[in-house]
Measured scan of single mutants.
Amino acid sequence: AVTGSQTALLLRAFEKDRFPGIAAREELARETGLPESRIQIWFQNRR
């Protein structure tokens, strides 16, 4: 499950760019500790 702090970080990124590229998703994966594929799905679901 995604924690509150991970969600906050993802929401901030989403406000800046609703369609992040692979580099941005990989950076978010490093920052959150989540797999990049999970980040991609999160953005798809959020849109």
Rank of each mutant, 00 (worst) to 15 (best):
L9F: 07
R38I: 15
T7V: 13
E27M: 12
L9K: 09
I22V: 11
L9G: 03
F14H: 01
Q40V: 12
F43K: 00
E15N: 09
T3F: 06
T32A: 04
P20F: 03
A23S: 10
V2I: 15
W42L: 02
F14G: 00
A23I: 10
F19Y: 13
G21Q: 07
L10T: 00
P35R: 04
L28F: 02
F19N: 10
R46D: 02
L28K: 00
I39V: 09
V2G: 04
A8I: 13
D17R: 03
T3E: 06
W42N: 02
I41P: 01
R25C: 12
E15A: 11
Q6K: 05
E27F: 08
W42R: 01
T3M: 06
Q6T: 07
T32S: 05
S37M: 09
G21F: 02
G21N: 13
V2R: 04
L10C: 03
A8H: 08
L28D: 00
S37H: 13
N45S: 08
E31F: 07
Q40W: 09
R46Q: 15
E27V: 11
K16I: 11
T3V: 06
V2K: 04
Q6Y: 07
I39W: 01
A29P: 01
F14Y: 12
A1L: 12
R30Q: 07
R18S: 09
R30E: 06
A24Q: 10
D17N: 14
A13L: 06
E26Q: 13
L11E: 15
G33F: 02
R38V: 15
N45Q: 13
L28Q: 00
L28T: 01
A1Y: 13
A1F: 13
R12W: 06
I22Y: 11
R38K: 12
D17Y: 05
R30M: 07
Q6F: 06
A1I: 13
E31K: 12
E36A: 11
R38W: 15
R12H: 08
I39D: 02
I41L: 12
A8R: 11
A8C: 14
T32R: 01
E36P: 09
N45P: 00
L10I: 00
S37Q: 11
A23K: 13
A24F: 07
D17A: 05
E36L: 12
S5G: 10
R18D: 05
R47V: 09
E36F: 05
T3R: 06
F19P: 01
F14I: 02
L34C: 04
I41T: 10
R30G: 04
G33I: 01
S37I: 12
A13R: 02
A13H: 10
K16L: 11
G33M: 04
R18N: 10
Q40P: 03
I22H: 11
G4Q: 14
Q40G: 07
V2D: 06
E36S: 07
A29K: 03
L34A: 01
E26F: 07
G4H: 14
L11M: 12
A13V: 06
R46V: 08
I22L: 14
W42F: 03
R25F: 14
N45T: 10
T32H: 02
T7I: 14
P20C: 04
S5Y: 15
E26S: 09
R46H: 12
Q6S: 05
L9W: 05
V2L: 15
A23W: 07
S5C: 15
P35C: 07
T3A: 05
S37C: 12
I39F: 01
W42S: 00
F19V: 04
E26K: 13
L34Q: 02
Q6V: 12
N45V: 09
L28R: 01
A8N: 09
R30W: 06
I22K: 15
R47E: 05
T32V: 07
G21C: 07
L28I: 08
E27R: 13
N45L: 10
R47H: 05
E31Q: 15
G4P: 15
S5V: 13
P35S: 14
E27L: 12
P20G: 02
F14S: 01
A29I: 04
L34D: 01
T7N: 14
A29R: 03
R18C: 09
R38N: 07
E15S: 09
E31H: 08
R38P: 02
A29N: 03
F14P: 00
A23T: 09
T7P: 02
R30F: 06
A29Q: 04
G21H: 05
A23E: 13
A13W: 11
E36D: 08
G4M: 14
G21V: 03
L10K: 00
Q6D: 03
G21K: 05
I39S: 01
S5W: 15
